[in-house]
């Protein structure tokens, strides 16, 4: 039996189907060497962010690369491993560097894309207002703007990284709860009233929130990440958490993951149509 039940779904939102825009969300879950991880990235929808679908996919690729290297370093570097295990404060210092690495590599990756496919030659760029053109040319990464939500389970710890809107839920015996309930370092007052921080923000390294849970002290059986379109379909957090619990129960009930996935995709399509209209992503990582 696998150690984890893993699944990641991203689908085109109803509003994007109507406007014939591509899905700008991306998600992935995987089990690496000595760890498991989930990432959800939500590309921004405004006209200015016309390459955000690539930006979100790039966030997954970079995230996976950085996590692989990070965990490999922990395995290989005894000193680093010892430091990580030594205290919460030490872990937080290491995670700060992890977040900076993600931003740096993502920015470098999108700049390489710009070099290969110049913005000025993109018809979506040509359709922008003059002011938006100036802004995008001044900061190329804007065109690729996306959020970054991730969770990693490693050696009795759960690491949560969060830049932008979207939600991270911890799955516990008593049910799902928002990660912010225990991971107070994730609380981000700037995420209000449709405003989000982003990989493309100038202050992305300061805006990145991260925290680490020792599951011996705070038992957690799994993690569910969702893009903001899921919570935004509900007017109460309770209704949203009921959905998360239902998703977890569904995946845990023993039937094939593919069947559960299809059922969830059908639901998410209906949710987007009736609810937020947004692209929707769900990524889950449940201990078997």
């Amino acid at each position: 039996m696998n150690k984890y039940i893993l699944d990641g779904i991203s689908l085109q939102g109803y509003a994007h189907i109507l406007s014939q825009k591509e899905c700008q969300d991306a998600s992935e879950c995987w089990e690496g060497k000595g760890y498991a991880a989930a990432i959800v990235s939500d590309g921004h929808g405004g006209e200015k962010y016309f390459r955000s679908a690539y930006g979100s996919k790039c966030a997954l690729y970079i995230g996976r690369q950085v996590f692989d290297e990070f965990i490999a370093s922990l395995h290989q570097d005894k000193k680093l491993r010892k430091k990580f295990a030594s205290s919460y404060k030490a872990r937080m210092r290491i995670l700060e560097q992890l977040c900076k690495a993600i931003i740096h590599r993502w920015s470098s990756a999108v700049e390489r894309d710009v070099a290969q496919y110049p913005l000025e030659a993109d018809e979506r760029f040509l359709a922008l207002t003059e002011q938006d053109k100036r802004e995008v040319l001044a900061e190329h990464v804007k065109a690729y703007g996306a959020t970054f939500l991730a969770a990693i389970t490693y050696d009795g710890y759960i690491i949560v990284l969060k830049l932008g809107d979207g939600n991270v839920c911890l799955v516990r015996e008593e049910g799902a709860e928002f990660a912010e309930k225990v991971c107070t370092a994730l609380v981000d007052d700037s995420l209000q009233f449709n405003l989000t921080t982003s990989l493309c923000s100038r202050d992305a390294d300061h805006a990145f929130k991260y925290d680490c849970i020792d599951i011996k002290e705070y038992p957690v059986n799994g993690i569910v990440l969702t893009s903001d379109g899921v919570l935004n379909s509900y007017t109460s957090e309770e209704a949203y958490l009921r959905l998360i619990n239902n998703i977890v129960d569904s995946y845990r009930d023993g039937a094939a993951v593919q069947q559960k996935k299809e059922e969830l995709i059908d639901f998410l399509n209906a949710l987007s149509q009736k609810g937020s209209g947004d692209d929707l992503s769900v990524a889950l990582l449940l201990r078997n």
Binding site: N232, S233, Y234, T235, S236, A239, R242, L243, N246, S250, E263, L264, D266, F267, A270, L271, K274, G275
Partner: peptide, 15 residues
């Protein structure tokens, strides 16, 4: 849909 009927019924738009 079955399993998620209740979750779809709880959907509501923000104002």
């Amino acid at each position: 849909m079955g399993r998620y009927d209740e979750n779809i019924n709880e959907v509501a738009a923000r104002t």
